[in-house]
Write a protein that binds this DNA or RNA. Structure first.
Lengths: 109, 109
DNA sequence: ATTTTATATTGCAATATTACGATAAAGATA
DNA sequence: TATCTTTATCGTAATATTGCAATATAAAAT
């Protein structure tokens, strides 16, 4: 064994975990921080900024793209990655909702 | 190769990723949801509620404990795990801050 | 003291992730 | 067209995660 038993969990639990997984690597945190600060992003910058090889950066970008956090467009010869703001805010709300649902009366000692 | 290059990232980026990693499994989401809904939690309940074996639940609980999200105390014969509310709110703020820092002017198309 | 009950640890197999060199693909430029 | 630049994909090695059976530990109950 070794595969996650995703089928025994709810859709919400799985998609929450999937979103968290994308944030579960410092390179992807760094990439998202960087892109969200920029007007536009040329991927080659990232290789220098982050300090990982070009294939590795490409893979991380792909993970981020998979959950819809990026939208890309071409601008001259360079691919421009941008934050998908709708999705970004959607995730913000998901995380916020998750953290908000806590029973204040749990285990009073 | 294969190990994450944590040393090339900032403390903030690494701890953000570490927190996300704990949330990056549906079982741990389910466990946290369940505990935060309860007045108190007997671990044996979790095995039934979640549907994973006792050792696996124990391991997941340990991951959650490692980032300080749980505090435990003994109540009669049963170990009682509770959400550590200070840490919980701390993480909520971290995630919220992360999602709040976005440049609204990125890549207008 | 022995048994029962609850939780933790160990060991291992299956799977997933991380990283990068090599290479391919696609567009820009000479 | 040939070449350069940029990004993606492939192949592979190292490492990490997931899950559980078996076992150990610890406390409570008998």
């Amino acid at each position: 064994m070794g595969a996650s038993k995703t089928h025994i969990f709810s859709l919400g639990q799985n998609s929450m975990a999937q979103a968290a997984k994308v944030l579960a690597h410092p390179a992807r945190i760094a990439i998202l921080e960087y892109i969200s600060r920029q007007e536009n992003c040329i991927c080659n910058d990232l290789v220098d900024v982050i300090g990982l090889s070009q294939p590795t950066i490409s893979q991380h970008l792909n993970e981020i793209k998979k959950i819809g956090l990026l939208k890309g467009t071409f601008e001259g010869k360079n691919l421009c990655y941008c934050i998908n703001q709708e999705r970004w805010e959607e995730l913000q709300q998901s995380f916020n909702a998750f953290f908000s649902n806590i029973n204040q009366n749990c285990c009073q000692i």
